[in-house]
Design a binder for these strands. Structure first.
Length: 429
DNA sequence: CTGACGTCGCATTTGG
DNA sequence: CCACATGCGA
DNA sequence: GTCAG
């Protein structure tokens, strides 16, 4: 079955869903089946049955098994912890809080979960867990309850509540649907993705998310990303060789697989100190949009989620290849960054998050502020409490490390997630 | 006890 | 019509 | 929900 062949058909078919819902049943039912079979069986999940999905698709040569969670951005790997069951409980509590519209509680649970994943030995009590960062009173008590009874009260829902929660989780897997919209759609009575496709008030973003729900959840092999990036670079430099184009994110950190393609662009003509705001906007608009248009024209970009003067979000695809013929759709972001902010942006969007956090704390301790917009020194005025900012000119990522007096780290050395584990090992020695 | 927990571009809704 | 608020993703 | 101020 050729995906390209389907392409022209899929878009209209979604629009014409009212008339021909049957057309949609096949692509969606796979998702749903997967869903009910693997994801939303709390009893199985709690007993520690590995929630793994092996991608059977021959498209992906990786025999990558991935723990499938409702999280759009899977946060933590918990597979080989001696406290895996506890972590799964915390993960479910995190999801519950997100569905309750409590993002900070969600993060609090995730933080506790990360601590516990990194903990090398089996926890015997909540008290023991409470020594870890992010684990306080409440979580300690829940861990005790779990260790004693094998479950946590808060997670026990009535059947109907559980069904509702499952549905909210399902809808949130669609890009463009978050906790609020997911709940509102459930309240409106939608029971499935097929139902949802009939909703006339879906935004453009949500339609794209629904259309590609399966493909967006697939990991992208590194070699495919390299080819995608190559296309963007060539197309961009064909317009103007003065563009600088670089992929960030996990790809730049050397990952074998990624979730999406995150590209930043800059051009010497786009600086923050441009005369009139209108001129500036004109330049910005054309600088990013001409790249987008070129990529649309050659069929590389298949759908757009948002198009602004400095940020583009969309969907891309390799040209059909005669050896494997695969052309999975992937999320792609393009950012246009002011020329003098380029390296700060590169650093920030290369991450990872933890590495950013460490560098920003270091900057703060030294009287600087580091962000994607640059490295700024806070200087106190001679008189009074006023401060003013001195922007540090950055010509490379190395410059930032140098100014902050940190040893330079190559992108692939900036994977800080999971490094906590090493800390513990070192501590034991 | 109380506030922070990252912040911002873009699409879309809301309320004048 | 516009200005602001909200939801979302990153 | 947790932590720091």
């Amino acid at each position: 079955m050729s995906t390209t062949h389907l392409l022209p058909a899929v878009l209209p078919s979604l629009k014409a869903t009212f008339k021909r819902p049957l057309l949609l049943r096949s692509p969606f039912s796979n998702v749903l089946t997967k869903q009910t079979r693997f994801n939303f069986q709390p009893t199985r999940s709690a007993t520690g049955g590995a929630q793994k999905i092996v991608k059977k698709s021959s498209k992906l040569p990786q025999e990558k098994t991935q723990t499938q969670s409702v999280n759009k951005s899977p946060s933590v790997q918990i597979k080989e912890s001696p406290n895996r069951d506890i972590c799964e409980v915390l993960e479910r509590l995190a999801i519950q809080e997100r569905n309750n519209g409590q993002p900070f509680k969600e993060r609090a649970y995730q933080k506790a979960m990360r601590s516990i994943v990194a903990y090398p030995t089996r926890l015997n009590s909540g008290k023991e867990a409470q020594t870890l960062p992010g684990v306080g009173d409440k979580i300690a008590k829940k861990i005790d309850q779990f260790l004693e009874t094998g479950s946590v009260e808060q997670l026990l829902l009535s059947k109907s509540n559980q069904e509702e929660a499952d549905l909210i989780n399902l809808f949130q897997r669609i890009s463009g649907i978050g906790p609020v919209k997911a709940k509102s759609f459930v309240d409106k009575g939608y029971k499935s993705l097929e139902d949802l496709a009939k909703e006339p008030q879906l935004t453009h973003h949500q339609r794209i998310g629904l259309k590609y729900i399966k493909e967006f959840e697939e990991k992208i092999p590194r070699d495919e990303l390299e080819r995608l990036l190559d296309i963007v670079k060539k197309a961009t430099h064909e317009i103007d060789p003065r563009y600088i184009v670089e992929a960030c994110g996990s790809f730049r950190r050397g990952a074998n697989v990624s979730n999406d393609l995150d590209i930043i662009l800059t051009h010497p003509d786009f600086t923050e100190v441009m005369e009139s705001a209108t001129d500036r906007k004109k330049v910005k608009t054309s600088l990013l949009m001409q790249v987008v248009q070129a990529l649309e024209n050659c069929g590389f970009l298949t759908d757009s989620i948002s198009k602004g003067s400095v940020k583009y979000m969309g969907v891309c695809q390799l040209p059909k290849n005669k050896t494997d013929g695969l052309c999975t759709h992937h999320r792609i972001d393009l950012r246009l960054i002011p020329h003098q902010n380029y390296y700060a942006g590169l650093l920030a969007w290369t991450g990872d998050d933890e590495h950013n956090r460490i560098m920003r704390l270091r900057a703060k301790a030294r009287g600087y502020t580091l962000s994607e917009y640059g490295l700024v020194r806070k200087i106190k005025a001679e008189i009074g409490e006023d401060t003013y900012d001195e922007k540090i000119h950055i010509q490379s990522e190395e410059d930032v490390f140098k100014v902050l007096d940190m040893p330079y780290k190559k992108p692939h050395e900036r994977n800080m997630r999971g490094v906590v584990k090493k800390k513990y090992l070192m501590h034991e020695e």
